[in-house]
Structure formats: C-alpha cells, structure tokens
Simulated scan of single mutants.
Amino acid sequence: MADKPQIKIGIIGGSGLDDPDILEGRTERFVDTPFGKPSDALILGRIRDVDCVLLARHGRKHSIMPSNVNYRANIWALKEEGCTHIIVTTACGSLREEIKPGDIVIIDQFIDRTTKRAQTFFDGGCESPAGVCHIPMAEPFCSKTRQVLTQAVKSLGVAFHPRGTMVCVDGPRFSSRAESLMFRQWGADVINMTTVPEVVLAKELGLCYAAMALATDYDCWKEHEEPVSVDNVLKTMKENANKASSILLTTIPLINQHNWDQTITQHKGMALSSVMLPKH
C-alpha cells in the first residue's frame, strides 16, 4: 500500500464554534495573502497527532459581518499553510420541522442567494492566478470527507441529518417570513450566511471541504414558534458548542486513518482542468 499523503486539516469556526482549546501545542501566525488578510490569526496546533489550523471566520471578537468576511484570503491562507482538508462549522436556521434546534446537518448542496461576494480567485486582477475558472458545482462538498464526518457524528449518538441543502443569503439581517416560506418551497433545508463562496473557493483550490451546520432556530416560517433572534441563536449555540468540539475531536483522527491520495488527486485534477488559460 502506498504511504498516506501528509494531511493537514483547516478548521473554520463559525459563530460560537471557534474554540482554540481543542488544539494542543497552539501557536499563532498572522499572515497576508494576494487577496488581503484573513479574518484573524491562523492558530496552528494538533488534534490527536494530526496537524490542524484553526481560523475564526468572523474574527475572534466576532467583528466581521458575513458579507465582509474575506473568504478568498481565508481559503488561500489555509491552502498556503499546507491544508489538504477544510472542515467548517456554521450556525444555521432550520427550514424543516424534522431538523430541530441543536441538530447537526452534514450539508451536501447549496442554493446561492448572495450578491456581494467575490466567488473566484481567477478574477483577472494583478494578483490573481492566470485564466478563468469554471469550477463544476454538481457536488460542491467532498463526498469522502462528508462520509467520515457522518461516521464520527453517528458514533457520538448526536441527532443529525446526513444531507441537506443550505440556502445562503447575504445577511446580516434574518429572513422575512415570505422569504423563509419561499426557501422552503425551493427545497432548501437550512439557511445561513457563509457557505457561499467558502465552498466554491475551496473547490477552486482542490481542497477536501466539508461542513457541519448546527441548527439554532426555525428561522421565521414556523407558526407558533418564536422567530429567530440573536438571543435565541446565542442561547442554542452556547448549549451546543461542546457538541461541535466533540465532533471535530472525533472526526479528525478518523480522517487520518484513511488514504486520501486518490481523493486529493481527483480534487486537484478537477480544479486544474476547470481553468481556461488566455490565448496568446
């Protein structure tokens, strides 16, 4: 059997889900990228002898609103740090009765309702890579990483859903009731403000990207249920932050048990073949 390639796992922590204490032997590194500075310092460390890099998506003081997150800098920095995988956590609203607050959803599809965000590294800028990238999005998330994440969640006995469609909105406001009902009709299962363009950019760089979404509320579609508010989101996040940490601590050693050579080669191959270089 071929040697396993050296893996390094980037962790992007969403609201209330970016606890650095999960890492052993932590060091901080402030970096710059061709696309500007990431949201905060990269926190380097290990989980069960696996190299990891933690990044707080909104900054450690939660000072960056969703559409102002420098997604390109964040993903580029993790790639430059040598990450082969990115596992992310995100708070979300549930658009389905069966997805209860506190449940985990291992999302497999998205609907993009954002309008203000750079979604490609290949934008023709002086610092961007050459060409135009038409990255396929039929399967946005790494299926093998999702499988390992699902295995970990299942082993912990946590209430979870092995797939789901995330509708991503700009925010920072929450939905109107009419919007919430419309998203349900569209077939979305959960709603957040950060999945796009994060997943798109990770795919452009050939990374194994998977997301676990933690439902905090029922958005505002559900009659006789209190509409989503900052207070109830924070309350649910506080109650469930340990759950997200436990899942990461279980998932990352499991990832390390697999050989990722073929998967990484496939992702990199798709990324390279999606770039149309300028004609000379």
Rank of each mutant, 00 (worst) to 15 (best):
V132Y: 13
I22N: 01
D219F: 05
R48D: 14
I247C: 00
A215Y: 14
I75L: 03
G187W: 09
E28C: 00
P136H: 06
N74C: 12
Y71S: 05
D217C: 02
D103K: 04
N256M: 02
G125S: 12
T33A: 01
G36P: 10
E80T: 00
S245M: 09
F122E: 15
A244N: 01
F141G: 04
I64P: 11
L249T: 14
V169T: 09
T145D: 13
F30Y: 12
F160L: 13
F110A: 02
P101S: 04
F121V: 15
T236H: 03
E223H: 05
R113N: 10
H258E: 09
Y209C: 14
T84L: 04
T27R: 05
F160C: 07
E127V: 15
S94I: 14
S245H: 11
S175T: 13
S274R: 00
K100M: 11
M237F: 02
A2N: 04
T84E: 08
R29L: 15
H258T: 02
H267M: 13
D19L: 04
I255Q: 01
A91F: 10
G45Q: 02
D103T: 04
R46A: 07
L207M: 09
M193A: 00
P101I: 08
R72N: 04
I247L: 00
G93P: 08
I252T: 07
A241S: 05
S274K: 01
E24D: 12
G131M: 12
S143I: 10
T216C: 05
